[in-house]
Design a protein around this nucleic acid. Structure first.
Lengths: 193, 193
DNA sequence: CCGATTTATTGACCAAAAGCAATGGCCAGG
DNA sequence: CCTGGCCATTGCTTTTGGTCAATAAATCGG
């Protein structure tokens, strides 16, 4: 049921058997088929989703109709519209399964309860958000300062397993450029070696 | 000494008198004059810095010599090279005072100790990093999807007190564009009203 | 196994931002 | 009160990435 989730949790913060049992009482699982939505813009994000199996993306659509991918989530990662989850405001992101996917859900109330009842859950949460913050800071720095070539190559180097499982135009949407431009960037790179 | 820091802390997580005393034992203060560095690239970031008074910026320099500002920090904010602070790796950012500044420092060992000894410190940390994450996510989304006009106006709307205290070329370095382009963006905006 | 999408590439053209250089204003420190 | 160094703006040119359109390749569902 929650194998990967518990494995990740224990890797970061080892749990006793009792804690583990208590934790599991607040978890549910859900399957999401390819191209199905876990969350749609405008709804309230009711859950944190931990990916047991599969691959999802969180994206927004701007006024010109272009998609912008804010996050991919592979096995072992957490995905949500965190702002909506924490505040109850309508979500600004869509979360869609890129492959058939299985997630562990933590509801808003479960999250609140676990924070109060299991100190290690707060530690787990803190470590997760810290990691997410550092990753995003790196991405932001790269976005405002590196060349397109470097940004693409950094993405491939950092997330090879995502790159091989998503279409190229999604990588473009993640990097903030058009599919045509990414295609040309790849060409320049291949010519240059 | 630590007025603003304690005020902020209590606003997020109310402390008992005993906790407050214990916490203060791990804090130190430091003054940094305008144009002086709190941290330089290559050093290890030894402290989290909470701004009591003044204004700082964290920035990196790319291979072409351009500065990129990753963060400003006004009174009440925390600034550091978090990756370096947590891992002990050399810092990739410089932190410089834009005005004469006074900061409260939390060393690596103080941070570790406080996390273990005062559960509310962990909560405070979690809330801070969550807020920083959400702010950065917003910035990233804006960077990859909005027009320059919108990005500049969003910055002014969100941080009016920073905008009035820093030179324009630093706002450009924060937004990821050249001073000339920002000047033209401002002109386009003023013509359009 | 086949047809319909989806996906990636490429070319021609265009718009937007960067690079470079010059100007003038404005402090800040002597 | 002067003077030297920022600082913002502007014109001109170059570069870069976006737009639009056509084509081909790959993939998926039936």
């Amino acid at each position: 049921m929650f194998e990967k989730f518990l494995e990740q949790f224990n890797k970061k913060v080892p749990l006793t058997a009792a804690e583990s049992t208590q934790l599991q009482e607040h978890l549910t699982v859900k399957k999401v088929r390819k191209k199905q939505y876990l969350l749609q813009e405008g709804e309230v994000c009711k859950n944190l989703a931990f990916v047991e199996k599969g691959l999802l993306r969180a994206y927004s659509i701007d006024d010109t109709g272009r998609e912008h991918i804010i996050q991919f989530a592979l096995e072992g990662w957490v995905i949500s519209d965190l702002y909506s989850f924490l505040t109850g405001e309508p979500a600004t992101y869509n979360i869609e399964a890129i492959e058939d996917t299985e997630v562990v859900l933590i509801s808003q109330s479960a999250h609140a309860t676990l924070l109060l009842q299991i100190p290690k859950y707060e530690t787990f949460t803190r470590l997760n958000i810290t990691g997410a913050y550092l990753a995003m800071q790196k991405r932001l720095t790269s976005t405002i300062s590196a060349t397109l070539e470097d940004r693409y190559e950094a993405f491939i180097a950092l997330y090879p397993h995502i790159a091989e499982r998503v279409p190229q135009h999604m990588i473009a949407a993640y990097l903030g450029l058009t599919p045509e431009t990414l295609s040309r960037v790849r060409k320049r790179i291949s010519l240059h070696k």
